[in-house]
């Protein structure tokens, strides 16, 4: 494969400034059809360019607890990272599993960590690898990693930048969900709010009718639902319309 010729690393300045720049790009895609893969590819390209790397990729957890490649700076990287998953080893996997940044600064270090994977990396001309986890809430949902032809660590500022771009990628995922799943979530939220209110009211009704405290009233409602196999919300609705009264047989 051809590597991107080594470039002078851009001077790192303000992390927020860089995030903001990346977000201007994000916002352009938000307006109409937000394409998550396209956006993540942009983030990867930025990460690669800004830290003077030759390749990079973003992997996200799939539904079976594995990782899948969502974006990469080149087709060749995609192949490499597919091996990463197949071999059960590599920087993205380590960052994903540990929730910590992974840095291997030389072929020897890489080999020690990933004996099966490193020969593929060496073949592609990479001498060092870094990865950072992507976090959504308390959960690690994936990782962003870069490969470089030259050995040695990234500077602190560069690592910060890679982390910042991983944050940006995570928010892109958040945004995509806001677009694709928001109506469903909004209805879910409305309905959860509504049932919570009805449950509290029903507790009060049963407590008053049965002369118990609130907690006992809730126990009665719940065990009635369990005994009769009726959904809680149906039991609650009958308590409120008055058709179900204590004793709740």
């Amino acid at each position: 494969m051809t590597l991107i010729p080594g470039k002078a690393r851009p001077l790192m300045t303000d992390r927020e400034l860089l995030i903001a720049d990346a977000f201007v790009e994000l916002a352009d895609t938000l307006v109409d059809d937000f394409d998550l893969v396209e956006f993540l590819s942009t983030v990867v390209d930025r990460a690669v360019t800004l830290v003077g790397a030759q390749a990079g990729g973003i992997m996200l957890s799939d539904q079976r607890g594995g990782l899948e490649v969502l974006a990469s700076s080149s087709h060749a990287t995609r192949l490499v990272e597919l091996f990463e998953v197949q071999n059960d080893e590599g920087p993205c996997l380590d960052a994903f599993r540990t929730g910590r940044a992974v840095t291997r600064d030389s072929p020897a270090e890489m080999r020690a960590s990933w004996p099966g994977f490193t020969p593929r990396l060496a073949e592609a001309g990479f001498a060092s690898a870094q990865a950072v986890p992507m976090r959504l809430r308390n959960e690690v949902i994936g990782a962003l990693n870069v490969f470089r032809a030259e050995p040695g660590p990234l500077t602190d500022a560069e690592m910060k930048l890679v982390r910042a771009l991983a944050d940006v990628a995570t928010v892109g995922i958040l945004q995509q969900r806001a677009v694709s799943a928001s109506s469903m979530l909004a209805e879910q939220l409305q309905s959860a709010l509504h049932s919570r209110v009805l449950i509290e009211q029903a507790k009060g009704i049963i407590a008053e009718r049965a002369g118990t405290d609130i907690d006992s009233a809730f126990d009665m409602i719940r065990s009635h639902a369990r005994r009769t196999g009726a959904p809680l919300r149906a039991v609650v609705a009958r308590v409120i319309d008055g058709s179900l009264r204590p004793p709740l047989g």
Partner: peptide, 28 residues
Amino acid sequence: DDPPLPPALADAVGRRAVVLQAAGMVSV
């Protein structure tokens, strides 16, 4: 059943739950 409110949002209603419970009692 409807999915419950997540903890971060349930607290918002929980602080006022006693008012809803009281409304249930007063309705009787």
